[in-house]
């Protein structure tokens, strides 16, 4: 299973980035291989519009089963994610990626319904 975190850095100790479209890093944790791979997403910072769809395209290509983030995707990004249909867990801002993963594993993160 692949779990994607929106993050402010590339490490387990990095903080969850509450933003989806403008998340600085996208971290993928592959539970079978037990490896954490980071994608630098800071190129969206210069964009006035379309950060949500740009990030959503990257997320789609990474095809995670689970997304752990803060505020949750905006409308444009959510439309893309419908085609991927991952489980999305929100309100993990303030936590490190590690802590967010543990909280998710314990079933303590709230899931966002994608309609």
């Amino acid at each position: 299973m692949k779990i994607l975190f929106t993050s402010t850095g590339s490490e387990w100790s990095s903080k969850i980035d509450p933003r989806f479209g403008r998340a600085e890093y996208l971290l993928i944790y592959d539970t079978e291989k037990d490896e954490l791979i980071s994608t630098d997403n800071r190129s969206v910072n210069g964009k006035a519009h379309g950060a949500g769809t740009a990030t959503a395209q990257k997320v789609f290509d990474l095809s995670p089963d689970v997304i752990i983030t803060g505020n949750g995707p905006g409308e444009n990004a959510a439309r893309v994610l419908q085609h991927l249909n991952p489980k999305i867990f929100i309100d993990a801002q303030g936590l490190s990626v590690k802590d967010a993963y543990e909280k998710y594993s314990a079933g303590d993160l709230s899931q966002l319904p994608l309609s």
């Binding site: 964009k47 519009h49 379309g50 950060a51 949500g52 769809t53 740009a54 959503a56 395209q57 789609f60 893309v80 085609h83 991927l84």
Partner: peptide, 8 residues
């Protein structure tokens, strides 16, 4: 402008 997304 990221107005297009390829969803597979």
């Amino acid at each position: 402008f990221n107005a297009l997304v390829n969803v597979g």
